[in-house]
């Protein structure tokens, strides 16, 4: 018989490292968020004032607003594209799907800094994007993509679309492959067109995959840091700043450590809430 303390012996290394470098710092973050501190001098207890700041500070509200825009580009657009591509591919047997998966997944394994460098080159004033626009006679559309108050945030968003679309497509293909072929044949015999087929058969079968895709991509959008740090540094002005970038700036550049911690905790609560909501939305069907 195993003594009662045996399992804990195996757990010790994991618990020590995880407790000291993950759980404990979260607690400390919560504590930090209740104080006003510049990182050097004395700190002052301010209660929930820093959280109030998340709601009232114009800079922070802008940052969370930008995160919402990024969610559209990181999550919704890839989901629409991924569903469409996978649904079309699923209708006819094609060879080479293995190679396809390998290729479209590549953006996921590149460091975000590398991705940012690549896209900065593409968006450069004399870069491939403007060159291509000029070549097809759309000179009027060329601009400094990363120096424009209106276009820089969407330009950063498109990079997210590029990174996430492959992952979402692969997920959708995996889900759709589970639907038995006979069901499609039956639907076609009943006279269902491609649209009916998609809505009635394909879409319900990938509910679970949609939930996973949305969770992964929305969390990625909310956590965006490297991309903004390297591509735009939040600029021009503060038109592309995001919550994670504000955490870094406030904690390590502008001496607003308490506020930074409050933003970080808010971000964490949002991510947990989102996970919960998305999983709830999917569950009832899966229980059948």
């Amino acid at each position: 018989m195993t003594p009662r303390w045996r399992p804990w012996l195996y757990l010790v290394p994991a618990i020590v490292v995880y407790g000291a470098f993950l759980l404990y710092p979260i607690g400390r973050s919560v504590q930090f968020s209740l104080y006003e501190w510049d990182g050097l001098g004395a700190s002052e207890f301010v209660g929930l004032a820093n959280y109030l700041g998340v709601l009232t500070d114009a800079g922070l509200r802008a940052a969370f607003g930008h995160a919402l825009v990024l969610i559209a580009f990181f999550a919704l657009l890839p989901l629409a594209l991924g569903l469409a591509v996978a649904a079309v591919l699923n209708r006819a047997r094609v060879r080479g799907l293995g190679l396809f998966r390998t290729v479209v997944f590549v953006p996921q394994v590149l460091a975000m800094v590398v991705v940012a460098v690549a896209w900065r080159a593409i968006y450069a004033p004399d870069g491939p994007l403007n060159t291509a626009l000029t070549a097809v006679g759309l000179d009027s559309l060329t601009r400094a993509w990363l120096g424009d108050y209106t276009w820089t945030l969407p330009a950063v968003g498109i990079v997210g679309t590029w990174v996430q679309t492959g992952l979402v497509t692969v997920l959708m293909l995996a889900g759709m492959a589970r639907v038995p072929r006979e069901q499609y044949e039956a639907a076609r015999l009943d006279g269902a067109g491609p649209v009916r087929e998609f809505v009635a058969l394909t879409l319900p079968s990938v509910r679970g995959e949609i939930a996973v895709a949305l969770t992964l991509t929305i969390v990625a959008a909310l956590k965006t840091f490297d991309l903004v740090y390297v591509m735009t540094a939040g600029g021009p002005g503060n038109s592309t700043t995001v919550p994670a970038y504000e955490v870094f700036q406030r904690a390590f550049r502008t001496g607003q450590v308490g506020s930074a911690a409050a933003v970080a905790i808010t971000l964490t609560v949002l991510i947990f809430g989102l996970n919960l909501v998305i999983n709830r939305l999917v569950e009832p069907r899966e229980d059948r």
Binding site: R6, A14, V219, A251, A261
Partner: peptide
């Protein structure tokens, strides 16, 4: 292994998968 506290500790570990780096890096 089955042992008391297993579920609680494991749930705590699961939490860590979701926690963003921003939430720990400041402290």
């Amino acid at each position: 292994m089955t042992f008391r506290g297993s579920t609680v500790v494991f749930s705590l570990v699961l939490v860590g998968i979701m926690v963003p780096t921003e939430a720990i890096v400041v402290p």
